[in-house]
């Protein structure tokens, strides 16, 4: 039983990382129907932005939770800004272009970000100099570290903040409206461009936050770290019903749990085969994802 609970915890923890990245995927898809392939790389850039801040302010910042939050805020602002820039430079000029062209720009942007970082920081992995406490505690016989708890808590807070933002604010309402009917929004005087920029900012900032969290928790960052998690987040977003925010989180948690259990019972080398195989079977049974159609609200 404690073994079972341990697997659940591992799955939830990994799932919360997937969720932060999947949210950005889903938001952008919901509003402009674009699969932003560079999204995973924004996560990577976030990790490197945090690394730069940490290295520059090593003496000043110290090592507590407050320092972590400060670094995260700077990194979120940086990746958010980068996301807006990306949309402005690479995606906005292509709005009237065939849909696949934009996809290609996104792949191009992904290459440019990855290798831009490789050129700037060198291909060697970098190590975060910020340690997190080693303390652990036992929950129902399973082992949890304080670091894991802190990370999960931060992720949950971020998700709730986003959810509130989308549900309660004017911008959030505009986002939902655009995803429903962009044409009507223009007629109603919504500044579509500005809302799209804000969507990119939010999604990218979340990915950046996840990047810093990964850097702090795992300790190692490299320029290709965004690729695998980008793929997984994409899968999670689709399982949840792409374009649906709560669906993205749900999908991420489901994916995290699935992976955790498949590693234990099938073997880690078959994990991705299992995850993608499940995805294919699942989509043939429920093509719109877990929350794809039931919920009308979309961002």
């Amino acid at each position: 039983m404690d073994h079972f609970i341990q697997l659940v915890f591992s799955g939830l923890f990994v799932g919360s990382f997937y969720a932060l990245v999947a949210l950005g995927y889903s938001m952008v898809y919901g509003i402009i129907k674009l699969l932003n392939f560079a999204h995973g790389d924004l996560y990577m850039v976030g990790a490197f932005a945090g690394f730069t801040v940490l290295s520059a302010g090593a003496g000043v910042l110290g090592g507590g939770l407050l320092a972590l939050l400060a670094v995260m805020l700077v990194a979120m602002a940086a990746t958010g800004g980068l996301g807006v820039l990306l949309e402005r430079v690479a995606y906005r000029p292509l709005r009237s272009a065939p849909r696949l062209s934009v996809l290609i720009t996104a792949v191009g942007a992904s290459f440019a970000l990855e290798y831009g970082i490789a050129v700037a920081f060198g291909p060697n992995p970098e190590v975060y100099q910020m340690g997190v406490s080693d303390g652990t505690l036992n929950v129902l016989g399973a082992r949890l570290t304080y670091a894991q708890l802190a990370m999960t808590a931060i992720a949950v807070v971020l998700m709730i903040t986003l959810d509130t933002l989308v549900r309660r604010t004017r911008t959030g309402r505009a986002m939902r409206a655009i995803s429903q009917d962009p044409k009507a929004c223009l007629l109603m005087g919504v500044n579509v461009d500005r809302v799209i920029s804000r969507t990119f900012f939010l999604g990218s900032a979340l990915a950046g936050a996840a990047g810093v969290m990964a850097g702090v928790y795992y300790g190692k960052i490299d320029f290709l770290m965004g690729f695998v998690i980008g793929l997984k987040a994409f899968t999670a977003a689709v399982i949840g019903g792409i374009g649906n925010l709560r669906g993205a989180v749900l999908g991420a948690v489901v994916l995290g749990l699935l992976e955790s259990f498949s590693v234990a019972y099938i073997g880690s080398e078959w994990r991705d085969v299992f995850a993608f195989g499940f995805l294919i079977l699942f989509l043939t049974v429920r093509p719109t994802g877990l929350l794809g159609e039931r919920v009308t609200e979309r961002v």
Partner: peptide, 13 residues
């Protein structure tokens, strides 16, 4: 799988 960050599956095993 190389290139990932979370090896909790292997660790649990």
């Amino acid at each position: 799988t190389a290139g990932e960050s979370d090896y909790s599956g292997a660790v649990n095993a």
